[in-house]
Write a protein that binds this DNA or RNA. Structure first.
Length: 606
RNA sequence: GACCUCAUAGCUCAACUGGAUAGAGCAACUGCCUUCUAAGCAGUAGGUUGCAGGUUCGACUCCUGCUGGGGUCACCA
């Protein structure tokens, strides 16, 4: 609902008639009037002064008068310096609310025939998910929802990194120290069990390296200690064993493959449980064990086209120096692939599976360079989908002590954090005692809903591009600018709507269409409601759920003020009473929709 | 060393992409439950937007330099 849109052609006409100046419509844009001034929308005059030799006040006055003459919807206007503030008649707001009420899927665009793939989560199978993954996962899930709302057909995929030296480390540690433990025998969730062995490997490997270093130092007392340390790290017997294991895995050694399958399945069971708690899902899962050999054909293709070149040792490179980047290795001299090789192959595979116009990769900003290179190479190869590749590069979640490191155990575990949040939600809700009549299963479902709402909102409200700080000492808030506040506002409105049904209040547009004198709180709320579709579009364009989060908060805040300052059911004017119930219903509708885009559920009671 | 990126209230984050007197939440303080859920509402206090220049009618936003944090520059992924 863009209320200002119809004014734009009129302004163009005004410039033409009065000043003989041609203006294109996209040169004109309105902003909402700041609270300290009277008006609904504001036109900034300064940009036009170069084309029209006028003083800003005079030009603003002239445009204002012209608009008044041509648009009955405008009640009045005022000019302050170079700002033209326009106030609409109350009927405009009533009409706007009616339009919103009559739109079933408000803010949601019809299918646009475009396909987009969103890859997110993409975990390693050697350790459980942590807070950093949660930011990734919630971002990916939310962006997928936002794109759907903008008319795209969306395919959500997970690319699991299930092979490589890091997996072998867990496997080796398990083989050596595991004593045949299983998730069943220990009662430890599969991903955590495997993750523990990754830590065991690191610990044992450090010991072994230290011992090796000690013998080196005895044998070569005159050598540079740093060089010795490096040598010891490289030749640690455990690391060599892990590398040997990787070789055997690639050869298909049945014993190794068997162990690998067993341990990975434990991890997948663990991940699935966590994804389910998070309320996220995927349409397809890719496994790197199936894709790591892909991409060699793409490298051959690039060689044939003369885009890549071969060095004397047989390794294949691409020279991106003309594009401001470096030379990049694409294939080792022994013909084996590197990370980017498989990503090239996987990109083609994705397109074959789902011929998309856009492909979003939700991956941390430490890989900015990698994705620049990947996209550039695919563009050079002339892939139709290459321009549509978007690296949703998000900032790391940091702790007060710095970055999280799995090996060093300085991570905030996803399962632990969820459990803690549920615990807090349970305590807090019981204290308030508002749902004492709930069945226990119903209550537990609510605690979980609130816990996830708090967590998701906490991670999504920050601009994805920016790094963010999490302090484990302070629990995630349930008050103020939080997910729980949004859920609370929804529950409060739901109570209003139940009461309205009981009382039989008619909230249809017909019942409030002749409301005339609206309160400022009502107008402000309608304005916020009217802004929703634009915000949904902006969020898709910028791949930024944070815009939706900010909007949802603004909406809830605006409603809460109205709720506190105006009575709904004690309002004597029937039209106004209907209007307020309708306003409540539309706020609930939009709030629920916005929360859905964030992957947050809206309770009816809490 | 080269390149990328960030720096806003005590703390965590905004600022509609260059517009008016930079806004929220938390923490502190003050009011408001005999009317629809107080997980709420209203208010007070808190700022030289890291520093120095520049561009312009106008700069948190763009440019240059400096300082400080993070990242990348692997035949790791």
């Amino acid at each position: 609902m863009n209320i200002a849109q119809p004014l734009i052609p009129t302004i163009c006409k005004c410039f033409e008639e009065k000043f003989n100046v041609q203006l294109s419509p996209n040169e004109i844009s309105f902003q909402t009037t700041r609270k300290e001034f009277e008006g609904d929308i504001t036109l900034v005059i300064f940009p036009f002064l170069k084309k029209v030799q006028q003083k800003p006040e005079a030009l603003a006055q002239a445009i204002g008068e012209y608009l008044m003459q041509h648009h009955q919807q405008i009640a009045r206007f005022n000019v302050i310096k170079g700002f033209l503030n326009i106030s609409f008649a109350h009927t405009v707001w009533v009409e706007t609310l009616a339009q919103i009420a009559n739109t079933t899927h408000y803010g949601v665009l019809p299918a646009n025939g475009q396909k987009v793939m969103v890859e997110y989560s993409s975990p390693n199978t050697n350790k459980p998910l942590h807070l950093g993954h949660m930011r990734n996962i919630f971002l990916g899930y939310s962006v997928a929802n936002i794109l759907k709302a903008n008319g795209y057909e969306v395919m959500k995929v997970n690319l699991v990194n299930d092979r490589g030296i890091h997996i072998c480390k867990s496997m080796l540690a398990y083989q050596k120290f595991g004593k045949g433990e299983t998730p069943q025998s220990t009662g430890i969730k599969g991903d955590h069990l495997v993750g523990n062995y990754y830590v065991v490997f690191d610990r044992e490997n450090k010991k072994a390296t230290a011992e090796l270093l000690a013998t080196y130092q005895k044998t070569y007392p005159n050598e540079n200690p740093e060089q010795l340390a490096e040598l010891a790290a490289k030749n640690s017997p455990l690391l060599l064993e892990a590398q040997e294991m990787l070789r055997r895995w690639e050869e298909g050694d049945p014993e190794i493959v068997q162990l690998w399958q067993t341990m990975n399945n434990w991890v997948y069971e663990g991940f699935d449980a966590t994804y389910q708690k998070m309320g996220v899902d995927f349409d397809k899962t890719y496994y790197e064990s199936n894709t790591y050999l892909l991409g060699k054909a793409v490298v051959e293709e690039g060689l044939a086209k003369g885009l890549f070149f071969k060095k004397e040792d047989g390794s294949v490179w691409v020279d991106l120096t003309a594009d401001g980047l470096d030379q990049k290795l694409l294939l080792r001299a022994d013909g084996t692939s590197v990370y980017i090789t498989q990503d090239l192959g996987t990109a083609d595979m994705k397109y074959a599976d789902f011929p998309m116009q856009k492909s979003v990769y939700v991956v941390g900003n430490e890989q900015d360079y990698h994705f620049k290179v990947l996209k550039l190479i695919l563009q050079k190869l002339g892939r139709s989908y290459a321009d549509g590749i978007y690296h949703l590069s998000y900032g790391m979640v940091e702790l007060p002590t710095g970055k999280m490191k799995s090996r060093e155990g300085t991570v905030v575990d996803a399962d632990d954090l969820i459990d803690e949040m549920v615990h807090i939600a349970r305590e807090r809700t019981k204290e308030l005692g508002k749902i004492d009549d709930f069945e226990s299963a119903e209550a537990e479902a609510l605690y979980h809903m609130l816990a996830m709402g708090a967590l998701k909102y906490y991670l999504l409200r920050v601009d994805p591009k920016k790094k963010m700080l999490f302090n484990p000492e302070e629990s995630i808030d349930f008050q103020g600018d939080t997910g729980v506040y949004l859920q609370y506002t929804h529950a409060k409105i739901a109570a209003i709507l139940r009461r309205a049904r009981e009382l039989g209040v008619d909230a249809s547009p017909a019942a409030f269409s002749n409301a005339t004198q609206l309160a400022p709180q009502e107008i402000e709320l309608i304005q916020v409601l009217a802004a929703y579709p634009k915000r949904v579009a902006d969020a898709a364009e910028e791949y930024a759920p944070s815009l939706i989060a900010a909007y949802a908060y603004e909406l809830a805040k605006t409603y809460s003020r109205l709720y506190a300052e105006l009575s709904i059911f004690n309002e004597p004017d029937a039209a106004l009473k209907s209007l307020r119930v309708a306003l409540s219903a539309q706020t609930a509708k939009v709030l629920k929709s916005a929360l859905q885009l964030l992957g947050i559920q809206a309770p009816e009671r809490m």
